[in-house]
Simulated scan of single mutants.
Amino acid sequence: MTASFARALEAAQDAAGSQNHPTHTLYVVATPIGNLADISLRALQVLRLVDAVACEDTRHTQQLLRAYGLDRPGGQLLAVHQHNEAEAAQGVLDKLAQGQRVAYVSDAGTPAISDPGARLVATVRAAGYRVLPLPGASSVVTVLSASGMTGDHGFVFAGFLPSKAAERQSAVQALAAEPRAVVLLEAPHRIEALAQALGVLGERRITIGRELTKQFEQIATLPAQDLAAWLAEKPERQRGEFALVLHDAPVTTSTGEGERVLRLLLPELPLKTAVKLAAEISGESKNVLYDRALQFKQGAEDGV
């Protein structure tokens, strides 16, 4: 533990020590997504106070606790991850039944959003015990806050798209028809494939956040069709964890000319070529016409 976190623990005691921390309770604690200083004073106090810490990875969590001067015996760390969440929840229930306080943390950020924890929370609530959330760092809201996303219709969280190429492409086609902003997450070994898949969204803007809150944090906004090339420019751009915002679709006023031309071209040309030519002829948005082309195609398959 550094001297700075020693002072942080003192501040945590001053700020939250007198607050009510009920027993028989599961505390869902957000932890930093990279920068250790992003821990909250309340989280430090609760992690010091609880009787046990359930966590996604016991080794990772022990290192995190040690950095804050909150080392715990191995027996007070309970492994609760995506492969054992249902069974491990019983161990948490046993401790709550004994009147203990248990914290749950994922490897980074806010648990039960994209990381494990949702099944544990549902099980604890179903058993009649209290679940007390401690807000904090989240890659989702962090990348949104830096994206400059200006749409009036909010956003949706899609998380990780499917790893199989065909399923991922189908998911991207669904995103093309989504007018709201969409938050995506991706791992370094799959970011290049995701960028290639998103390229079909053309000029629709994407903000990519790499290594958010860490030393080599990088945030860039560019058209979806340029994302793969941007990643390929420098090898380091494909390293780290990624959070992305697909910006809301631009609102355009259509004269109907683009749709008319599109209907004429689609029976004769591949979809992408028809969309490209219809956009050039009419001056209307390629993204909007692409969405309409997908709708026409689906309607034809359904016999509408």
Rank of each mutant, 00 (worst) to 15 (best):
residue 14 D to Q: 13
residue 245 V to E: 01
residue 85 E to M: 13
residue 190 R to V: 05
residue 166 A to V: 15
residue 15 A to H: 08
residue 120 L to G: 02
residue 64 L to K: 04
residue 184 L to F: 06
residue 73 P to M: 11
residue 283 G to Q: 11
residue 198 L to V: 03
residue 177 A to H: 09
residue 52 A to W: 07
residue 23 T to P: 15
residue 291 D to K: 12
residue 241 E to V: 00
residue 48 R to L: 07
residue 115 D to L: 03
residue 23 T to D: 15
residue 213 T to F: 09
residue 152 D to I: 08
residue 270 P to H: 07
residue 129 Y to D: 03
residue 146 A to M: 15
residue 183 V to C: 14
residue 120 L to H: 02
residue 129 Y to L: 02
residue 145 S to Y: 06
residue 93 L to F: 01
residue 129 Y to P: 11
residue 301 E to M: 15
residue 90 Q to C: 05
residue 284 E to F: 02
residue 47 L to V: 04
residue 99 G to D: 07
residue 245 V to C: 06
residue 217 E to S: 00
residue 214 K to G: 04
residue 28 V to E: 14
residue 300 A to Q: 15
residue 288 V to W: 11
residue 151 G to H: 00
residue 67 A to P: 09
residue 169 Q to R: 15
residue 292 R to P: 00
residue 265 L to E: 05
residue 291 D to G: 15
residue 105 V to C: 10
residue 14 D to G: 05
residue 188 P to L: 06
residue 185 L to N: 14
residue 156 V to W: 12
residue 123 T to D: 13
residue 239 R to M: 10
residue 89 A to K: 00
residue 228 A to R: 14
residue 219 I to S: 02
residue 127 A to W: 00
residue 104 Y to H: 09
residue 299 G to Q: 13
residue 37 A to K: 14
residue 150 T to N: 13
residue 184 L to V: 03
